[in-house]
Design a protein around this nucleic acid. Sequence first.
DNA 1: ATTGATGCAAACTTTTTGCACAGAC
DNA 2: GTCTGTGCAAAAAGTTTGCATCAAT
Lengths: 139, 139
Amino acid sequence: MDLDQLLILLKKKGYKTTPQRKTILTVLLEQKDNLLTAQGINLECIKHKKNTNITTIYRNLELLNEFDLVHKVISDDGTAHYKLKCIENHHHHLICKGCGKMEVIDYCPIKILENLSESKSFTLTDHKLELYGYCKQCN
Amino acid sequence: MDLDQLLILLKKKGYKTTPQRKTILTVLLEQKDNLLTAQGINLECIKHKKNTNITTIYRNLELLNEFDLVHKVISDDGTAHYKLKCIENHHHHLICKGCGKMEVIDYCPIKILENLSESKSFTLTDHKLELYGYCKQCN
DNA sequence: ATTGATGCAAACTTTTTGCACAGAC
DNA sequence: GTCTGTGCAAAAAGTTTGCATCAAT
């Protein structure tokens, strides 16, 4: 999925194409599987010399989240990190308890735990699996 | 692990036994595998007629977290939820995207995805596996 | 022309910090 | 008596909201 496809998708839903929206999506597309905070996106926008108000960034991220277009991960310090869903090929993250660095691992949950430590030279201490969906009442 | 054991453990590390600390630990022990926010703990303290300043709660949770005695889960709205690690028998959570309810599932990541939907009548839409540990540099 | 989008400032929520006083050892 | 713990108030950080204005369709 590229910039134009995303914009067309939003346009179909009644959302306009604006320079700010373009910049934010461009930044997210560039980052691929990297997780970025709202502040991080802001900095990237500045690098592109396309200053974008932080409020606008939040509002666009919320919009993207509504249509399930971004993956939102909340880190241990409570800050939200985002990346586009459309470019991810289903994988997960290694999060270093030392430096907080988030690294991508390409495989899916099942059976990765054992052969992970050596292949990434990452010492596993803990893991969190959170499953989302709808419970009996909400279904 | 019960209240006295926890208090002894902390005392060994140089931390004093105070009524507030006792109340907070008592509340956490009662909740077993339930996840509680700092505010939630506050409410429970009030129910016990042992009012405890919210700051004190945060400070004690931080202390417990330092010694890896609590499990800290951050939800999608950015609020931290806690429970004691010492009473959990390694499991994970189902988080309803509708109401946000967090329910315990007793098994571990591997191979639960397939037989989950029917056994809990929970419609899975998404899941997040986050692995924590130390990377090459931090090791 | 209409309706959504933006920018600014201010509000809000959760969490953290500074400081004086209280209390556990 | 010492030193950690507490409560209060204020600050900080991230995020959200209200409102007037701007701009894409």
